[in-house]
Design a binder for these strands. Sequence first.
DNA 1: GAAATACGATACGGGTCAGACTCGTAACGC
DNA 2: GCGTTACGAGTCTGACCCGTATCGTATTTC
Lengths: 199, 199
Amino acid sequence: MTSTADAPRSPGRPRSIRADEAIIEATLDLLAEGSTIEALSIEAIATRAGVGKATIYRRWAGKDALLLDALRRLKGVLAQPAGHSVRDDLVLLVGAIGKNVDPRAAKIMPCLAPAVNRSADQFQLYQNIISPRRQLMREVLRRGIDEGVLRADIDVEVTMALLTGPMLIQRVLQWNPDLDEQSLPERVVDAVLEGIQAR
Amino acid sequence: MTSTADAPRSPGRPRSIRADEAIIEATLDLLAEGSTIEALSIEAIATRAGVGKATIYRRWAGKDALLLDALRRLKGVLAQPAGHSVRDDLVLLVGAIGKNVDPRAAKIMPCLAPAVNRSADQFQLYQNIISPRRQLMREVLRRGIDEGVLRADIDVEVTMALLTGPMLIQRVLQWNPDLDEQSLPERVVDAVLEGIQAR
DNA sequence: GAAATACGATACGGGTCAGACTCGTAACGC
DNA sequence: GCGTTACGAGTCTGACCCGTATCGTATTTC
């Protein structure tokens, strides 16, 4: 909920900011501990937050609205490319995929996969989180083209998918258990840069 | 459950094979229609299959065991690379990602993402499904190296992730709504082959 | 201090589901 | 035909949950 602070100051006891925080935190904690989105109950959140159920229903219309708000808090911060070497910037961005400041994010992300295909709201939320990250990578690629480091005829959108996909399936799905996640960003970037074709 | 057909033929009415089939089919149908794994109830499966609940409990210990069996049926068939052009074979394999013969598979796959990180059984199941596909791609890449079409110093495992990742995040997560899924396999393969570096 | 609103706690009716159970019936070997 | 087992359908108990309402109490404005 957007806290419209310019309200004409209603009478009565104001809503507790601590309760707000506790509810959001409890929601994220429970998700990070392994609960799936739909197994999550308002009652469990209330108990975990040390809050009455009414306090939650006073703020949100239901679980969906609460979740939307909670997940918004999880965005984390964008990685900031240094701007010197295109390759190093790409390694930084690729390495940042699925690695948010909030360690709970990594646990929660896979839960969104089913939701994304089911609810337009969740899909929009997901896009809102990742589209600035895509934009960041897009800018680095464009810069690379301008500087002549990258070919001018590449498909920037496909290239972004090429850089993001491997990292995402590895971090979210553990696609290939034998793949070393630590060195993966560098190896992905270099492979994409050089191509695999003999020449 | 593995049908141990060498049993000494127990007395009484044998279990109905049609019931077996109906239960599995009902499970997959319900999942494909949008039910999530945990929203799926034995009661709903029984009703859909036209079967008593006891008939299900007689065969499986619970929902998890049933699901494991049901998902096993979903494997689909492996794409068969023609073996002529390495590029064409890769396009075929990449295009086959997330496209099983059973159209229900595409709807069900995203549901596995959360499960994979939660249950060792589900993780193993998932790996059992995808590892033969990885192997197929690995062989094509090795062939490419042998034929001299691909460089000998490439990292085969990383290359597989490079080819698979973009397709998977697009089909499962709709990662970038602006990306045309139809032409993606070709564009991914070509981009990986050629690299993006100016030279 | 009075009115207003919030708080945590708890109770409520209504709902879904798991699993074990009971029917009467059906299919098998002997 | 008889014992055995499976069948579909249904019942029952005990959980768990939703969303609302109602406690007594706390915090704010006027």
